[in-house]
């Protein structure tokens, strides 16, 4: 197993790796059920809030992100009601898997872990949107990094 994954994500990948198809589906459903818990909590403030409805997804997806004083990413994801089950599952998995990771770790994580989690049987053309949430999270982290760079150059 590659070590370029954040520690918590690596744990999830390892868990799914051990499962047969039925167990994998069961765990994906369990994660999808947890997706609502990934929503922003009342009063939370974020550095980046990127909420939009793209063509690649069946409903709006919001990525809400802040980086704490220790350089750890705090991530929340809001999902419209029509977002498909796999996308909801991946959202919950990534919120948990990226918890406490650094922005650099998230930007560098390879996308090859997605089929390792969901299994080849569920990766289909119509479900390529499972990669969508990962790309949205990376986009938000990139926006945060650009914002930090712009602020640093303004100060200097």
């Amino acid at each position: 197993m590659q070590s370029s994954y954040p520690k918590k994500l690596l744990g999830i990948i390892s868990l799914f790796h051990e499962l047969d198809d039925a167990g994998r589906r069961e765990n994906l459903i369990a994660y999808a059920d947890l997706a609502t818990r990934c929503s922003p909590r009342p009063g939370e403030v974020f550095d980046i809030e990127d909420i939009r409805k793209d063509e690649e997804c069946t409903d709006a997806v919001g990525v809400h992100l802040r980086v704490d004083s220790k350089g750890h990413v705090i991530l929340r994801i809001s999902l419209g009601p029509k977002v498909q089950t796999l996308t909801r599952a991946l959202s919950a998995i990534l919120c948990k898997g990226f918890d406490g990771a650094s922005p650099t770790e998230i930007l560098e994580v390879p996308a090859d872990f997605v089929p390792k989690i969901i299994g080849s049987e569920l990766v289909r053309l119509r479900s390529q949107t499972v990669y969508y949430v990962l790309s949205r999270i990376k986009t938000a982290v990139k926006m945060w990094s650009d914002q930090q760079r712009a602020e640093a150059s303004r100060v200097s």
Binding site: R25, E26, I29, Q84, T85, L86, E121, L122, R126
Partner: peptide, 22 residues
């Protein structure tokens, strides 16, 4: 369904699942 995990999240009692692709 199109949503390939939707059946597993809950379905009509006694319904079976036929996956168009598989």
């Amino acid at each position: 369904n199109e949503d390939i995990l939707l059946y597993d999240t809950g379905h009509i009692p006694n319904a079976i699942h036929i996956d168009w692709r598989r």
